[in-house]
Design a protein around this nucleic acid. Sequence first.
RNA 1: CACGGCAGCAU
Length: 243
Amino acid sequence: VFTYSGLIFGFCKKGEIDRAFKLRDEMLTKNVEPNIVTYNALIDGLCKSGDIVKARQLFEAILDKGLPNGVTYTIMINGYCKSMNVAEAFRLYGEMLSRGILPDSFVYGALIDGCCKEGNLEKAQDLFQEMVQRGFASIHSYNTLISGYCKCGKLKEANQLLEDMIKKQIAPNHVTYSTVIHWHSMEGNMEVANQLFSEMQERNLIPNAITYTSLIQGHSRKGHVAEAFALFEEMVAKGIEPD
RNA sequence: CACGGCAGCAU
């Protein structure tokens, strides 16, 4: 099971779902019973390749056997959120709770991301508060919420959250900073973006190609070609591959 | 022993 599951996981990750399913069939003919981890890998592969319908069919099939665990639900919920079917995601979430599976930071993160994508910041905020109360505040969930606020043009609130997390001793990472830097750059707030850029480096966080690209685009849009080019040279000098 | 949530761009 472990050998086959490992291979199946590898193929699913590469998007070679057909080969993954061939291996599953091979398992069955050799009387190696796939377990929930095997199924989770397959369901996730289907979701990520955009085939939520097939993913759901497999999910229902193993539901009859009582197999799905918290990971399975999170995979399906995330799949629905990504394909903008947040309502179905919440339906499954309810089903998961009614089956006695406790929510963790992963499901909360997926649901919060879904609410943000829908523009439902109130609901995202509610879920976030609920998860904080349960002690699940994590860097990922902060990042999700910050990104959601940014996408809705609420940069002030996003910065508020950033300060908030620092106060709560949850250290922002390069994703956190890249997010806010990107959106401030889009707004043309290059002073703020530069400020955040220094701040992240003071925290010993390493900017990557995404961080640099956001700043470069921001400066370019304003016609600050010299600054943009200086940043380009800086990133190359640091050995960061421009893309 | 293996599986799940977060950032830019991708005409």
